[in-house]
Every structure is written in structure tokens, then in C-alpha cells.
Design a protein around this nucleic acid. Structure first.
Lengths: 359, 359
DNA sequence: ATGAAAGCGCTAACAT
DNA sequence: ATGTTAGCGCTTTCAT
């Protein structure tokens, strides 16, 4: 920058002002400075800038890289939304462990990020959150609700799950099983509650034996379904508690030569990429993941602008999107295989096709 | 830091040295400094540090967020490998457009990242690359080979595609079609060449009509398959050139009520997540994406250490992994549905199951 | 409309 | 073993 200033015959401060447009500069000198910048290929050093302005225009994203469901669309959406406001994203992988999460947050703190979007690890001891609060780093929590001191955005679980159950009940199923996630985490509990609510509304009896834990993962879910099928009075329909467990459920059924939905109806929480080329096409409640991310950034930006830190923490709960396909046993009007991609139909959206409706 | 120094009754430089371990400090003062740091909750400012050391320990990752195939595993792997060496990742979305790519690189330059991993946009004019070279920012290219001045890591395309074709030929197919990607990009051309090589080896006649362009995307691939089926002498087998097009291929076939592999055999380049719960299970050549990423980081770290910039650019080509499942029409020994997840089998790996062998 | 100078929080000689 | 000091490349008063 000193070099640019000298070549242009101006002071460093003038260069700064033309680069940032922070004060009026005569067109003549402006022009000259710009020229010199061009010919020298000068690239401003944001590190130095950050040191004095004490903002980095960096947003830290903390989540487990393994949480694929979120990783792709959330990171992409946060990054996109952030960039519109001049922010870039730094990743911090919490590897689903409390210690790594703390480490990740510390890294972000030392890098002086302007804000943080955090998908808390299961079992988070809140000490990380305390630190974040302490350092007054604007932060918004996504996915799991667990600390009312922060802005949070997540998805509605109870009604959505209930709807899944009611749908199955309406089709005549009375023995409807739930493959639930890790017990103890709010998301799981809410979905279990939704499942029970759905049974109640349909006038069906609750039955402890029909709830098995898939521990939020494919392998355990696969085994859990095995148990379920071992019982006498096995269910005729299964509700899967998240995307990974759905994979396990499908593997288990296929492993036993069972067909969906003929031998077993299946519906699930969470959509899967390309779910429409799965066989059968899955009826699910999809999380509006991109919306979650952009809402999170919106809240974050608002909070970063809130210098006095006087805003009340906000909690946003987005509705799940019911996507009706065929694994439930319905033949979906207008989306049957034939008509779906009949000649003349447009190709398109990568996400699952099918009727979608907010809950 | 000044605060910590004062409270501990030492000079700032001493604090710096205990934090970084950059020179011997007497155990006594060390202890005291650490205590003060603990009780004040002092978090070192890496921005300031970077300004003087002129390294940021930041790796910039440039790629299109839409290139999902890469986005997830590559970003995750780069981040993981980088962290082992104390680096964090900054994202820069090229949005698949040359202008955005330039913008992204500029951002990284101004943030003074220590290195860059770049998946070049189609149609890259090299001006970005020139700039990177100019600024002497260690850079490694992934996915597409297009500039011998850089370290590059990608996947082998020709042999892998040929193998796919030969496999189909061995099963008795003689009219084997290719749904190719965007013409002009090296990856596509190599796969087309591999397709033709496979035909030659199998003693089959090449036929221009059996190569259609799916433009690297699902929608166009879906339409391309439509055309293909319109011909008299339609193919009996299809090779799909990448994962997105595979989705299009499957949609097109399903839309016409055609069954795979009974009515049409399908094999593909690129694996899909959860491909083993697709129906049918897809026989593919998978890219060793995680390896590509960690190899890229390895090269990057080596180059960042190479102060004099004297190393020769290296080009690493990793073999594709042939994953034999059932869409080709084979009944795969030991991985048939029944035995795959028979009682007692472990759940596990999220990636497609099936026999994998390097090419 | 422009320049001079102080200082952001740290590291790294150079002293002692 | 520790302290002093001079910057790193910018932004930002305060002058002019």
C-alpha cells in the first residue's frame, strides 16, 4: 500500500480512502490511484484491516462434518447468504464431540470471527456457549434447541411427526412402529411426542414395544428393525425418525426380502437427496434446510448489527414439509411414475419430487 | 495480552513465549502466566499474530457449492487433513461461473490464506490461475486437469470408463449407449475416450448415435435418454457419465415404465450416496473423493513448506473404484439382497456396499 | 481535498 | 531467563 501511495504520489491514507470509499477523493487522484493499483496488482491486506477495525467479516460455522443432512445445504446456504453481506465462512468441525466442539469454538474466537452459527453437539455442556456469551460473539444455534440465551432456528417436530402417523392411520394401519433417534436429545423427544400425539388423534393405542431406538444412525436402525420384526404382532407400518435411520430401515427390510409398501409401509422424518429415484419413492417430512440456514444468517446479521446487545433472543421454528410419495402405500395422484416424467415433462429440481405442503 | 502481562508481572513478550512455546520460560513464571490467562479468559488474537508472521494458517477452498459430488466429502476431508496441521478452512463459492471464481480467489488473496485448493470452473480463463501464480500462493487443483503449472489431483477416467463398457459387453450387450457430460471439458472427453476404448477392446462397432449429451446434469440427461429410446435399434445398456446424469437416466427409464436391469442395463461413473438402497443397486466406478482431498492437502502442505518454490508441479491421478452391484444385470455373488443384511450382519458404512476394486 | 501520525495486538530481533 | 523496542499493513483522528 505504501508502494501504491508513493507511485501515485499521494499519502497512504488517500489510497485507503479510494479503496474503501470512506471519504471524498478528487476524481483526478482517484483515477491515478486506481491506475496504480491496477498496474501493480495490489491486493489490500484484510488482515491488517481487521486488526484496526476489529472486525473480520468472517462467520464461523460449527457443526459435525458427519451431519451430512445439514452439512451440504446449510454450509452452502450460510455461505451464500453471508456473502451477500460481505462475509466469508470459516469451517470448524465439531466431530460430534464436546471436546472438539470447544476446540473449534476456541479457534473461531482466536480468529475473531464476527459471528457464529452453531449446531450444538449432543451432550454439549454449555461451557462453550458460556464462553461465546462471555466474549460477546453474536451466535445463533441451529438444529437443536437447548439454550434460551441464544437466537435459535430449527424445525417443528411434534406436529410433523404426528401428521406422518395420522397419514398411516388413515390408510388403515393400526400397528405403527417408530424407529426413534438417540434418547435424551430434544429433537428425538419431540418426534416421539409427535408420534404419540398422532396415535392419540387417530384413536390408536400406544404400545411401548412399537418404539425402538435406532440411535440416530443407519446401523443401529437396521438392527432395531430386525428386533421389531421378530415380535409376534409385528407392525405393518414404520415411521423413521431421521434420514440415516431410514437407510437402515430400508436395508433391514430388503435384507428380509420385504417389499415397501406392500409388506411394510414406511414414512420418514427428513428427506433424502434423490429420494424420488429410491424404490419406493419415500413419503417424508422434509426439513426446509436451506431456509433454516438463511434464517440463521438473517438473525446473525441482525445480532451483529445490534451493538448494545439489547435484543431479546429469538427462537424460530420452521414447519416441516410433507412430501407425499409412495412408500406409505398411497398411489399419489399426478405423481405416479408414468405421468411424472412422461414425454414433454420438464426435467429439473434435484430434490425429491412429489407434492409438498407445509405443516 | 498487555493486561495479562501486567497482572502476571511480566513483559508482553514473555506472555507470547509461553503461549507459543517459542523460547524457554522458567517454570515459575510460566505457571503464573498460565494462571492469569486462565482467570482472565484471555484468547490470543490470531489476526494480530498473522499480521506480523504473515501467515494465517488458513486454507482457501474454491469450488461450486452446487458440485455436491465434491462439496461434502472434499470439504470435509480437506478440513480434517488441514486441521491436523493446524490449518482452518475458508470457503469460497465459485458458483460455477468464471467471474465468481475470480471474485472468490480475490477474497482469499486479500485474506492472505496460506494455500488454496481449487476445483476450477468450466471455462476458466486462467487469469485467476495467473494471479494465484503471481501472488505465489501455493495452490493445488482438483477434479479437472487444466494447467500444468500447478499441482493437480484427479481421477483416472479412460480406463475406468472402458472397464464399465467391457463389463457390459461381457454380459452380451452390443448396443451400449453413453450419456456424456458437457463436451469440451477434459473429464467428459476422457470418459468418452474410455467408452470408445472399451468398445474397441470388446470388438464392438462405434456408433455416433449411441452417444448423447446429458450436459453433466440430471434434466438434460433425462431428455437425452428419451431421444435414445426413440431410435429404432435402441440400446440395451446405458453408461452414465456422472452421478447427476445417472439420476436423470433412472428417472427417464422409470418414466417409461422400464425396469433396470431387465429392460435396460445401467452402469455409471460416480457413486451416489446410499446407492445400495436404490433400486436396482447401481454398478458404478466410484471416485475416491476423500483420497483426492487428502492427497490435495498433502501436496498443498508440501508446497507451503517449499519456501523457494523450487518443486516441480506434480500431477496425481487416482484410480477409480469399480463397485459391482446389480444394475448391470449380474447377480453379484455374496452381495445379493438376502445375504447382504442377513441377521447377524453388521450395519455400518454409509457408502454403497458391494465389491470394490481399484482399476 | 489531502497528509501526518498514532495505534490495532502481536512477534522477533536485540539487549541485558 | 526475561525485558525493550520496532514494526507487520492498515484505518482514523486531527491537522492543514
Amino acid at each position: 500500500m505504501a508502494d501504491v501511495a508513493e507511485r501515485a504520489g499521494v499519502a497512504a491514507s488517500t489510497v485507503s480512502h479510494v479503496v474503501n470509499g470512506t471519504r471524498p477523493v478528487s476524481p483526478a487522484t482517484r483515477e491515478r490511484v486506481l491506475e496504480v493499483i491496477e498496474e501493480t496488482g495490489y491486493v489490500p491486506n484484510r488482515v491488517a484491516r481487521s486488526l484496526v477495525t476489529s472486525d473480520t467479516h468472517l462467520i464461523g460455522i460449527v457443526m459435525s462434518a458427519l451431519t451430512n443432512r445439514f452439512f451440504v445445504p446449510v454450509v452452502a446456504a450460510i455461505d451464500r447468504a453471508g456473502r451477500r453481506h460481505g462475509y466469508s465462512s470459516v469451517l470448524a468441525d465439531s466431530r460430534d464431540r464436546v471436546a472438539s466442539e470447544a476446540e473449534a469454538v476456541n479457534m473461531l474466537l482466536s480468529r475473531r470471527v464476527d459471528g457464529v452459527v452453531l449446531a450444538p453437539v449432543v451432550g454439549d455442556k454449555r461451557t462453550v456457549l458460556d464462553k461465546l456469551l462471555d466474549e460477546q460473539v453474536p451466535t445463533v444455534l441451529i438444529d437443536r434447541f437447548l439454550d434460551e440465551r441464544f437466537d435459535q432456528v430449527g424445525v417443528e417436530n411434534v406436529e410433523a411427526t404426528a401428521r406422518l402417523v395420522e397419514h398411516l392411520a388413515a390408510l388403515g394401519h393400526s400397528r405403527i412402529a417408530l424407529v426413534s433417534g438417540l434418547r435424551g436429545i430434544p429433537t428425538t423427544e419431540e418426534r416421539v411426542a409427535g408420534y404419540e400425539l398422532g396415535l392419540d388423534r387417530a384413536g390408536l393405542r400406544r404400545n411401548r414395544e412399537l418404539i425402538v431406538s435406532g440411535k440416530s444412525a443407519a446401523g443401529p436402525a437396521e438392527r432395531a428393525v430386525g428386533e421389531l420384526l421378530g415380535h409376534k404382532d409385528a407392525p405393518t407400518a414404520i415411521v423413521s425418525g431421521n434420514n440415516y435411520m431410514t437407510i437402515g430401515v430400508l436395508r433391514a427390510l430388503r435384507g428380509r426380502g420385504m417389499r415397501v409398501p406392500d409388506d411394510m409401509a414406511v414414512v420418514a422424518y427428513d428427506d433424502l437427496e434423490f429420494a424420488d429415484v429410491f424404490q419406493p419413492r419415500l413419503t417424508v417430512v422434509a426439513q426446509p434446510v436451506a431456509q433454516i440456514a438463511s434464517k440463521a444468517v438473517e438473525l446473525l446479521i441482525r445480532r451483529m448489527a445490534d451493538k448494545d446487545g439489547t435484543r431479546e433472543p429469538q427462537r424460530v421454528q420452521l414447519p416441516g414439509v410433507f412430501v407425499h410419495r409412495e412408500s406409505c402405500g398411497c398411489v399419489v395422484k399426478g405423481t405416479s411414475p408414468r405421468s411424472l416424467t412422461a414425454p414433454g415433462a420438464k426435467g429439473g429440481g434435484r430434490r425429491g419430487r412429489g407434492a409438498g405442503s407445509a405443516l
